[in-house]
Amino acid sequence: MSVLYDAPGPITKRRERIGSIIGLVLIVVGLVALVLALAAPRVSANGAEQPGMFDPSRWDIFTDLALWRGVLDGVWGTLRMAGVAAVLAVLVGIAFSFGRTARSAFVRIPVLVILEFFRGMPVLLMMLFILLVFSTGAYPAGVLALGIYNGAIIGEALRAGIASLPRGQRESGLAIGLTPVQTRMLIEFPQAFRQMLPIIIAQLVVLLKDTSLAYVIGYPELLRKVVNQMSNFYGNRYFFSLFFLTLVIYLAINLSLSWLARYVARRSGPRMGKALPNTPKPPGIEGTRAITLPRPRNRTPD
């Protein structure tokens, strides 16, 4: 975007530097004010004074080993759900993409309707549905709902990947005598999968984030385990500290996964070329996407 401006001269450069410093000062002042406000002792309605949020008495439980065992339990609960749901989502996605590109309209159209239904409905509602209707526990309900919902999105991505392949791929497959199914399995699908890998991984990061929705249906994932159960156990005093810990753990997991997804996208980047600016949006762009990835270039037949 720098092409929009003239190259900055010495005066503009100085102005930018001053602006930058002022901005930095404002941000730091804002953060310090926030921290001070949190650290200030608070007076409750009945006049009793309680220590501020950074008082050692609110953080002393973090030396307790039992707490960390509980935290590990919570992390494990979240990862266990995300891992199984991720495998399920990819499998469901592959199945959906085949159904969606089937030659027979009797398969294609029902699959399309089901896909739209699953994609347009909140995951939370799906979790509740599975929990109540099939009276599974909270864990299977969460895994199934996340698997189906994200599978629907991955399925659309794979379909778009298959659709974006040059026609010649399919034609040459058929021309050398492969059956339509073989062509799809051996020629088209592997290319589509590789092309859509960045989007699939991005969606799996979203899936991990969405496991926290299982909190609502009572599954002991990180948030419920740490904040609710621990603050019941250790006392309400630690509510804020425990929430802060949960937030940090989530950010650590998600940021490192997002970074990994970007790394994979970059690794498979050269093969796919740069993103075309005006290619249609990949269907995986739901708002809950954790990261932005370039859409792979549609290879043009030469």
């Binding site: 941000i27 929705l213 989530y250 950010l251």
Partner: peptide
């Protein structure tokens, strides 16, 4: 896209942190 670096950094940090926090949280 602002020319001021600290503003840019703040916006980037805001985006990264909130996008990686689950909605439930």
């Amino acid at each position: 896209i602002s020319p001021i670096a600290s503003v840019r950094g703040f916006a980037a940090a805001y985006t990264e942190i909130l996008r990686n926090t689950p909605l439930t949280l």
